[in-house]
């Protein structure tokens, strides 16, 4: 007796979907590998460049150390072999396995992204609902203008202004970093310390996202309001508040969820600018630096994890659609 949720159709869906996902991730990895090897120069050259001086012997030693003296097909075969055994390889530049490096940076990235996206989704959606319900009135104009302003202002500029005002000027919050290492806090003091460091970067990043959610939510709400079933709801005498929350909001959530999926997918890519300005030890900076340093193993590893997350989140979003709107069905 098969469990009712595990009927043939579902089984086929999951098998197909998972195979599809694995192929996509593998395909991305292959394309990345060759794309990145098109970049001029290699890691040995970058290291020698940074060292300020070099000899051919020194560079040959580095290339041997990095495995760069092997022909490209051999390097590719090694990389592929590693991948199929779930080994992301070794970053010679950092002298650490790629997985360990990603693991070191992951908590900081997750913290920053969760805080900023959470803030953006909640505050942005709320503002969007308020704007839609007051469409054309002062509140709407104010919210829309603010959202546009945050959206149009470059992230690094917002970040720097926040630093100048709240750190240097008012001295309320730290300039950057994730902890006050000098103080050596532990326990709750440490949590409070990290939270204080988190405020400005999360706000900077959140303000940009917030604008997107506000505008998306407002537009979706307005669109759904014109639908027939809303007229029906009004006709059967429901209270406006209930209509707004149960009928309009739920249906308006679809585009927001789509957007959320896209953004969560880019979590591992991190937020290079914000991480740079606030010296936040996240993955975005690691990937960005790896690119300039031609640390291809590391960069490929981050990109691979990133693509895996995108694929998984896509699946999650698809599943969420069916919950939000029962008319949508999963199909192969």
């Amino acid at each position: 007796m098969v469990a009712p949720w595990l009927n043939r159709r579902r089984l086929r869906f999951w098998a197909g979907r998972l195979a599809h996902m694995a192929l996509v991730v593998l395909g991305i990895a292959v394309v990345n590998f060759f794309l990145l090897h098109l970049a001029p120069g290699d890691a040995a050259q970058v290291l020698a460049g940074e060292a300020g001086s070099a000899t051919p012997e020194y560079m040959a030693a580095l290339r041997r150390q990095f495995g760069l003296d092997q022909p490209l097909p051999v390097q590719f075969a090694q990389y592929l072999g590693n991948l199929l055994t779930f080994n992301l390889g070794f970053s010679f530049r950092h002298g650490l396995p790629v997985l360990e490096l990603i693991g070191q940076r992951l908590p900081a990235t997750l913290l920053l992204m969760t805080a900023s996206i959470g803030f953006a989704v909640l505050a942005g959606s709320a503002l969007g609902v308020v704007a839609a319900r007051n469409a054309g009135r002062l509140a709407d104009t104010l919210i829309s203008t603010l959202a546009l302003l945050f959206y149009a202002t470059p992230v690094f500029w917002i970040g720097l202004v926040l630093v100048v005002v709240f750190s240097v000027g008012l001295d309320w919050l730290p300039v950057g970093g994730m902890t006050s290492v000098e103080a050596g806090y532990a326990g709750w003091d440490h949590v409070r310390d990290v939270a204080r460091h988190l405020v400005l970067p999360a706000a900077t990043l959140g303000l940009f996202y917030l604008a997107i959610y506000t505008r998306l939510m407002r537009a979706a709400m307005l669109e759904v309001t014109t639908q027939d079933f809303i007229r029906t709801a009004v006709a059967k005498g429901l209270k406006p508040r209930r209509i707004a929350l149960r009928h309009v909001l739920r249906n308006a959530l679809l585009p927001v969820v789509t957007m959320l999926g896209v953004q969560v997918g880019s979590i591992l890519g991190g937020a290079v600018l914000v991480e740079t300005i606030f010296a936040w030890p996240g993955l975005g900076r690691l990937a960005f630096e790896a690119l300039f340093q031609r640390d291809l193993n590391l960069l490929l590893g981050i990109l691979l994890c990133s693509s895996a997350v995108v694929v998984v989140v896509n699946l999650a979003v698809d599943l969420l659609y069916t919950v939000l709107d029962p008319r949508i069905e999963l199909a192969r």
Partner: peptide, 15 residues
């Protein structure tokens, strides 16, 4: 400390 942004370095020194 690693502070990659030049303006942030100036702010950290100033503060």
């Amino acid at each position: 400390k690693v502070i990659p942004d030049a303006a942030a370095r100036a702010a950290a020194l100033e503060k």
